[in-house]
Structure formats: structure tokens, C-alpha cells
Amino acid sequence: MTQFASASKDRGIWRGIVLALFLTFMIVPFLATVLFSISVRWDRTIFPEGLTLEWWERVTSRSAFETTLTNSLIVSLVTMFALALLVTPTAYWAHLRVPRGKPFIEFLTIIPFGIPGVVLALALIRFYSDVPLPLINTPNILVAACMVIALPFMYRPVANALDAVDIHTLTEAAQSLGAGWRQTLWRVILPNIMPGVIGGCLLVFSTVFAEFTLTNLLVGARFKTFPIYLVEFTRFDGRQASALAVISFVVAWLTSLLIIWIAGRGGRPAEALGAR
């Protein structure tokens, strides 16, 4: 018995060490970046040589700061709404009337996991440079590409939400009361699957807001987004770059916390593979 107790105590210590190491590894890079962005100088001593807001003031007062932040917001929001509009009715219709279509939809939502960002960019450039549409070298192609990589993040939560409610009964009830398809979807189904739709939207937003690869290769300097601006700064002024990095961290973490808060406890399956 005493042996048993001491063994479980040992395991408690072991568990504490593992969790503490993990926490340190995950938190220190973020905290160090925050501290670096408000340090006068922090490259010769263990502690910063004084604190200042100078780098924050400098970097946020540039006109490019506002432009790139706005551009990122535009791309993220447009992608988010376009995907919500495309995916929600499709998923609802497939769940309700075309269950045999679901494997095809799911196939299309798995493909993005198997295509590296650089390969997607290459494929789109190779195909659309010969197509006479206002796509290549414009933000339009960027939105389309972002929709592809964010597709799984939108579809999964919406499909899970649809699985969780009895859409057949709801639809029949709505239609027997005289509601048309649009009314049924908008006034009856949507409120019932709202947590899934919002969760998907937020995941799409945070993925696209941090997107660098596709932006860099598809539009480059023509349409600079926030991550592009950040990478430019890392090359010539680390301290101002650190302020931009902190903003990126905070946007990503806040959206994720919002997602967790909306999803409530019970957790969603891992939906990762975002902006690498």
C-alpha cells in the first residue's frame, strides 16, 4: 500500500515536470517577443536595458501599417463570408437531400490538407495565366486560394453542427407551416447551427489573417498584407518587427480563445494545418 502511494506521488511529480516544461516552451517565445518589443535594447544583457514604447509608435505610425492591416482584414473577411455562403447551404442540402454527395464534398475538403501552399500557388498560376479572367495577379485569386486552404475549417464545424440537430424534422416543420427553402435555411436551420457556422468563420479568419505563402507567391508586392509587412521588417528592423509579431500573436490567440469559448466544453476535433 505504501509502495503504491509513493509510486503515484512520483507520477505526480513527473506529470508536473512534463506540463511545466511544455508550458515554458509554449509561453516563453511569446513573452520574450512582447518584452523585446518594449525594450530599449535587449541583445547584450540578460534583462532589457530599459523599457520604451518607441518601436510601437514608430511602426504603427507608418502608412504601410494601416494599409497592410486593412488589406489583411479585407482578404480575411471576404474569404470568410464567401466560404460561409458557399459551404453552409451546400452542407445543409447534402445532409438533407443528397447524402450520397457527402463523400465527394468531403473529398474536396480533404484535398487542401494534401497540397502544400507553394504547390497550390504554382497550380493556380500555371492554370489561370492562360485563362482570360480577372484573376491572375489580383486579390481575387488570393481570395480563391485562401478559400481552398480554409475550406476544411469551414466545412467540418458546419457539418458537425448539422449532424447534431434533426434537420429533417426542422425542415418538414418549417415547410408544413409554409416556409420556402430560403426561409427555412435562414430562419430555422441557421439559428440552430449558428455555433458551428461562427466557429468555422473564426477559424477561417485566423487562418487567412496569418496567411503568408499564397499571398507572397500569388500577389507579392502588388497587394501587401500584414504577414508580408512583418517578414519585410524582420529583414531590416527587428525591434519594429517584434511589435508586428506581437499583434499577430494576439490576433491569432484571441480568435482561438473566442472559438473555444463559443464551442463550449466538449472540444472539437483537432483542426489544424493552418498558415505554416
Binding site: A32, P227, F249, W253, S256, L257, G267, A275
Partner: peptide, 22 residues
């Protein structure tokens, strides 16, 4: 800690690289 994993798994790219330089 589960929430921390949830938050950080979607994180990568430029800000992460920069944090590791710091």
C-alpha cells in the same frame, strides 16, 4: 493546457519564426 494546445496549433509562419529569433 488543452486550450493552450488548441490556441497554438493554428499558429505558425512569420511571427513564430521571429519569436524564435528573439
Amino acid at each position: 493546457i488543452t486550450a493552450l494546445a488548441d490556441v497554438t496549433t493554428n499558429f505558425g509562419g512569420a511571427p513564430l519564426a521571429f519569436a524564435f529569433i528573439v
